[in-house]
Design a protein around this nucleic acid. Sequence first.
DNA 1: AATTTTATATGACAAATGTCATGTATCGAC
DNA 2: GTCGATACATGACATTTGTCATATAAAATT
Lengths: 213, 213
Amino acid sequence: MIKTVVIDDDKLVSLSLKTILESGSEITVAEIGSSGSEAIALYEKHAPDVMLMDIRMNDMTGIEAGEKILSAHPDARILYLTTFSDDEYIVKALNMGAKGYILKQDFEGIAPAVSAVMRGQRVFGDEVMTRLPELMQRKSAFDFAAHDISEKEQEIIVLVARGLSNKEIAAQLFLSEGTVRNYLSSILDKLSLRDRTQLAVFYYTKCSGSADF
Amino acid sequence: MIKTVVIDDDKLVSLSLKTILESGSEITVAEIGSSGSEAIALYEKHAPDVMLMDIRMNDMTGIEAGEKILSAHPDARILYLTTFSDDEYIVKALNMGAKGYILKQDFEGIAPAVSAVMRGQRVFGDEVMTRLPELMQRKSAFDFAAHDISEKEQEIIVLVARGLSNKEIAAQLFLSEGTVRNYLSSILDKLSLRDRTQLAVFYYTKCSGSADF
DNA sequence: AATTTTATATGACAAATGTCATGTATCGAC
DNA sequence: GTCGATACATGACATTTGTCATATAAAATT
């Protein structure tokens, strides 16, 4: 028997979920809650095998609640439910160590998902998974401001990361080649890099995705 | 009732799988096969709801077989089994549209995985999923062979893409700096690039991921 | 054994790169 | 109006880079 706790803002949803989950003989819903803080409390109270939780709720996002639970119980199995792929959260949930992320519309799929999660698998809705590659790309945007990188410097970074030479960059931005060099020099200094190649590497590994390209 | 076909090189494995899957009352194994070509034939013959397939087999990789099946039946549900995370294949399988990728050691997890897949979810073993973020970065591997890029040249590409100077690369590979330059020169020529920075850009956008890093 | 390939190395050279000190014009603050 | 900041530019310099022609020894072919 798999013991679960269901958390959803909308009572109607959580009750339907309870019904669905308990319609088989494998799953029980120990209790249902409707907020992030309740999620934490109920996890402590029941120590469920699997916790099903809505991603977006009033007081706290499901992510935050999940983080708290996981920091106290690293082996907690949290399965997120979402109405319609809330893109932003998918990657976070994944990195956080959530065991799954599925659409709640998908009634039939939920019970099997719970039991797969119980057995150590991770489960993702088809649509969710499909978007994943693209979401994954977007790395954590690098905080240029924190490093005193000006607008113009950022433009230059982007062009360097496109493989342009100083001369080409100069032409593109209507600057003299010398000026471009000066900018570049200051960029390298600020980021503690040695040359344009390292800057390109930096761009593709640490930052990326903020602006164009 | 979920109809499945199981494909595994090792008869022992496929028979055990059959037993496990059929121990519940939800899944039947219509037939078992042991090669990529058989996979295709058996898919045609039974049109199973879910096909469980080993990743590495004699005649053909599970990936190839899967590709063929999916091109003929885009909605086929293929669930890959792997002995121990064969990293290289994970991303391919995912992009290809496989419904899951789980460890076969994980007996208990397999049946729930099959039923979750049947319901439209995608299922991944915990270990598999954990590696995913890092594997994802690595774009579709570039075909070095097609461009006459030698082993040594590839090593150099990787180091350039790490931001090392010629001198550093030379030290790393126990070559003279001049030799490194020569290699690099020939690489640039073969790939029609102009300088090391463009090579790094190339590495992060077009190829990447074949070797280390 | 003779020959070709392969892997490595050199040296010479031009171009690109990065650094630095300095110069000039504009613009806003005081 | 002066002062200081900002944005752009220069020139000089050392280094690094990329290209090319050539060399050598070992390994593979013949």
